[in-house]
Write a protein that binds this DNA or RNA. Structure first.
Length: 871
RNA sequence: GCGAGAGUGGCGGAAUAGGCAGACGCGCAAGAUUUAGGAUCUUGUGGGGAACCGUGAGGGUUCGAGUCCCUCCUCUCGCACCA
């Protein structure tokens, strides 16, 4: 073993070795419990960033840890390889998306291998390969058969100048990100997945996801947005024949007696019918046009002003029988509920503001039991759930809850409406008018209509020769040999669907594909998914808290119903890791600048202006605060990069980058290396006595050392298992190294000549290397080898602490007076009784000044911890 | 506005179940080694002269509170007119 730690050589050696031996390839071994460890697969942008390093290192620690603990570990990696950047590159640089993507995958795969991640690369998948996306098509057809995929007209973001559809994130301030022209909503035929059919199950089974962070679950629940309520018809007075009544949705049937007007969404077709031929017609039309021109963000901003206009029509409140005016209001959403509401100004803040603004009546129907409200003198709507009904006919005096159920029942009995559940969740629009995605396997036949592609004709492969212009809509539409086909039903000329699928489809089931990545007659081999699913630990960014995770849950349930898996939820445990952040340097003239462009005195090297050291922000190119993993690894090695990113913060919290901290991690590995190197030679020549059989015969100091070692074994094991506290696990390893240095570095003659102590030291060093190995695997393998052990450290068994040894640990007992710490007694044998300990504490010299001349009223003894004298 | 989370040394962060606040690391200081620097090793490092005081602020429960309860402040994230 060399005296100098040389990470580059070591890491190259072990990475080659691992690759040659196929060390991480997993064979299904039913004799072991399975552990499926998965990190969110990356988009192959070409280069990895520190966020990837952090994400994948966290997963790698868990994978390696579980392997050593005797689990059969599945730890795969792949590529989320479809998507816009490849197509944009094709438009801008003329490189084919496939070529660009494959090149990026190749270089990123190399980078990942350079981190020493324990992936089974034989299971690698790339979603842009037909062998993968054909199964997107297969699943699509199954969903179509079951009515879970359907086509309907729906608005998209349309850029007139580029003649193309834009994703939401490509619309900046209502303008096209590439050509800066205005973006309009355009109605187009689009494919949807009926995720709403699973809304109730997706919501209900949130309760079963006990291994998920609460905030992710609450975001999911909110996104699904279930509300229980009632749909009620309000008869229109002197109605046009097409519109006898207006249906509203409310979650507060208990307040219907307080409905003093109605509000309809400007987009609602009811508006036209109401105002037709009235004197209000023109003004209302102008109002509607003006509102519909506003972009969605301004429109739905809660702080923007409420506006409305009277339609001239009245409806009858079914409970009071009163005629109430019908208004058009900008804040009523056409997409939600029925696009019309009853307005209860006394008990809804929005309606209250609206009523005040336009002088509409306010009628109190819920009374606050603790502080009587006066309907002529309200400052705001009373919306609390605590109260009883008033001014509500027979229902008056009922508590809110009872009023709600009784009025709802009454409405159903009198056939004024029905109890209904509404969800905020919309069906999932999967159509993309793009090239680089999965072609939707449908055919549009002039005589038969929409016809699914027969299963045996799959996959529908993307045509390779396509002009990429960024204009004239989907590129696939313009490829004649792709678009023109024959109808499978009638054999006549037909057109192929040119939409491709949203890339979220790809990532909604890839974790299932990993269980049988080479299966050719089904997307998933049911036995393999039975063996490996669900994912025991899923790790990724919080940015996917809603969409990806919701879609993946939805797909799992659909595939379950297709008989391809038996699990209902894909991810048992979810860890959302924090962002990697770094301080920013901001020059008033040059904006965010690189740290290297700032002088020591915080001046800009370009213009001399004083630089403000900005906030700690997520690493991004635009902030000029990124650290390139490749450079980091070149300089310090992968083990240091891994160790630092695990040590600097617990996984779920943001990690603040620190160059000094990286230096510290490197220093620590050097320190371990020197320690092991010091002992390797002597251990080779002297053949130390095995420690297990000599426990009682070893010297006290060695015995103490063993206890320290076993103490850390327990700590590290607990920290990894419980809550992924890698930072504290590493600090325990650091403590262990400090203990070993204090004990025997540099090595003394006394140690050298005592084979029993050397045996203890060997045990300690082996344990140290094993404990370190999930975090810094290359250096661990190298040292494991040098210490003369067989096989790999990865194939060794994770060390177990000896509980008997820890029980011998002498105790330190804290002495308190009236609850304040005033002293301590050390070295108390763990088997002492309460009397012995209290007596010893009382006699402690420092305590006499506290206890003298005072009566001890009470003594509180906490076993193994403290004695508290209450005087 | 609503929801979730967080406020601990100069810094990143520790503190099972209410029981030594500040583990570990960074930074800093001193010493050793060295021709010197770097590297390394050792020691010290919350504040205060001290008794003592210290976990965002104030109150409470308790023998004892960073931890539990109440009120408030600040920050971060998510949602944002969802009837």
């Amino acid at each position: 073993m060399k005296t100098k730690y040389d990470p580059q050589t070591i890491e190259a050696r072990w990475q080659t070795h691992w690759a040659e031996q196929g060390t991480f390839n997993v064979e299904d071994d039913p004799s072991q419990p399975k552990y499926y460890c998965l990190e969110m697969f990356p988009y192959p942008s070409g280069r990895i960033h520190m966020g990837h390093v952090r994400n994948y290192t966290i997963g790698d620690v868990l994978a390696r840890f579980h392997r050593m603990r005797g689990f059969n570990v599945l730890h795969p990696m792949g590529w989320d390889a479809f998507g816009l950047p490849a197509e944009n590159t094709a438009i801008e640089k003329g490189i084919h998306p496939a070529e660009w993507t494959q090149a990026n995958i190749a270089s990123m795969r190399d980078q990942l291998k350079r981190i020493g991640l324990s992936y089974d690369w034989t299971r690698e998948i790339a979603t842009c390969n037909p062998s993968y996306y054909r199964w997107n098509q297969w699943i699509f057809l199954k969903m179509y058969q079951r009515g879970l995929a359907y086509k309907k007209r729906s608005p998209v973001n349309w850029c007139e100048s580029c003649e193309t559809v834009l994703a939401n994130e490509q619309v900046i301030d209502n303008r096209c990100w590439r050509c800066d022209s205005e973006v309009f909503p355009k109605e187009m035929d689009q494919w949807f997945f009926k995720i709403t059919a699973y809304a109730e199950e997706l919501l209900a089974s949130c309760d079963t996801l006990t291994g998920w962070p609460q905030r992710v679950l609450s975001m999911q629940r909110h996104w699904i947005g279930k509300s229980d309520g009632v749909e009620v018809d309000f008869q229109v007075i002197d109605s046009p024949p097409e519109l006898p009544s207006i249906r509203i949705f409310t979650t507060r049937p208990d307040t219907i007696f307080g409905a003093t007007f109605m509000s309809v969404a400007p987009e609602s077709p009811a508006v036209d019918l109401l105002v037709k031929g009235r004197k209000e017609e023109q003004a209302v039309h102008e109002f509607v046009t003006r509102i519909s021109r506003q972009d969605r963000n301004t429109r739905t901003d809660a702080s923007s002003a409420k506006e409305g206009l009277f339609t001239g029509c009245y409806a009858r409140n079914p409970l009071t029988g009163d005629a109430i005016p019908i208004w058009v209001a900008n804040f009523v959403l056409y997409e939600y509920g029925t696009g019309a509401i009853m307005a209860v100004p006394a008990h809804d803040q929005r309606d209250f503001e609206f009523a005040q603004q336009y002088g509409l009546p306010i009628r109190l129907v819920i009374q606050n039991p603790t502080c009587t409200l006066d309907q002529n003198n309200l400052n705001e709507a009373y919306t609390q759930e605590d109260g009883y009904l008033v001014n509500s006919d027979n229902f008056s005096t009922l508590p809110i809850k009872d009023g709600r159920t009784q009025i709802a029942r009454w409405i159903e009995e009198k056939q004024h409406g029905t109890r209904t559940v509404h969800y905020r969740l919309r069906d999932w629009g999967v159509s993309r008018q793009r090239y680089w995605g999965t072609p939707i396997p449908m055919i549009i036949c002039p005589t038969c209509g929409l016809v699914p592609v027969p299963e045996q004709d799959l996959p529908i492969i993307l045509p390779p020769d396509v002009p990429f212009t960024g204009k004239r809509g989907s590129p696939l539409k313009n490829v004649a040999e792709f678009a023109h086909t024959t109808c499978p039903d009638c054999g006549n000329q037909a057109t192929r669907e040119s939409d491709t699928m949203d890339t979220f489809v790809d990532s909604s089931w890839y974790f299932l594909r990993y269980t049988s990545p080479h299966q050719t007659d089904l997307p998933i081999e049911p036995d393999a998914s039975q063996r490996w699913m669900a994912v025991d630990q899923y790790i990724g960014g919080i940015e996917h808290a809603v969409l990806h995770l919701l879609y993946a849950r939805f797909f799992t349930k659909v595939l379950r119903d297709l008989g391809l898996t038996t699990v209902s939820e894909p991810f048992t445990n979810l860890l959302t890791q924090g962002m990697v952040c770094k301080e920013t340097y901001h020059c008033p003239k040059h904006g965010f600048i690189l740290p290297s462009d700032a002088t020591d005195t915080h001046h800009c090297t370009h213009c001399g202006n004083t630089i403000s050291i900005g906030r700690i922000e997520k690493m991004s190119k635009s902030k000029n605060n990124v650290v390139d993993p490749e450079e980091l690894i070149k300089r310090y090695g992968a083990d240091t990069a891994r160790l630092f990113s695990l040590f600097a913060a617990p996984p779920e919290k943001d990690l603040e980058w620190s160059d000094d901290g990286v230096e510290g991690a490197a220093r620590f590995l050097n320190r371990v290396w020197r320690l092991v190197a010091e002992y390797v030679e002597i251990l080779k020549t002297l053949d130390p006595s095995p420690v297990q059989n000599t426990v009682t015969e070893i010297p006290q100091t060695s015995r103490d050392l063993r206890r320290q070692v076993h103490h850390r074994i327990r700590k590290v094991t607990q920290d990894i298992k419980r809550e992924f506290q890698f930072n504290t696990a590493i600090s325990a390893i650091m403590e262990l190294v400090n203990v070993l240095y204090a004990f025997g570095f540099p090595i003394t003659d006394a140690i050298k000549n005592d084979s029993k102590t050397l045996g203890v030291m060997k045990e300690a060093l082996d344990a140290l290397v094993m404990l370190l190995s999930p975090f810094a695997p290359h250096i661990a393998e190298e040292m494991w080898d040098a210490l003369g052990n067989d096989s790999h450290v990865l194939h060794s068994s994770w060390p177990q602490h000896d509980p008997a040894l820890l029980q011998e640990e002498p105790l330190t007992i804290i002495i308190q007076i009236n609850g304040k710490t005033r002293g301590k007694v050390e070295g108390i044998p763990p088997d002492w009784t309460e009397e012995q300990v209290v007596e010893k504490a009382r006699k402690e010299p420092k305590m006499s000044s506290w206890l003298q001349g005072k009566t001890t009223r009470k003594v509180i003894y906490v076993e193994q911890r403290l004695v508290n004298f209450v005087v």
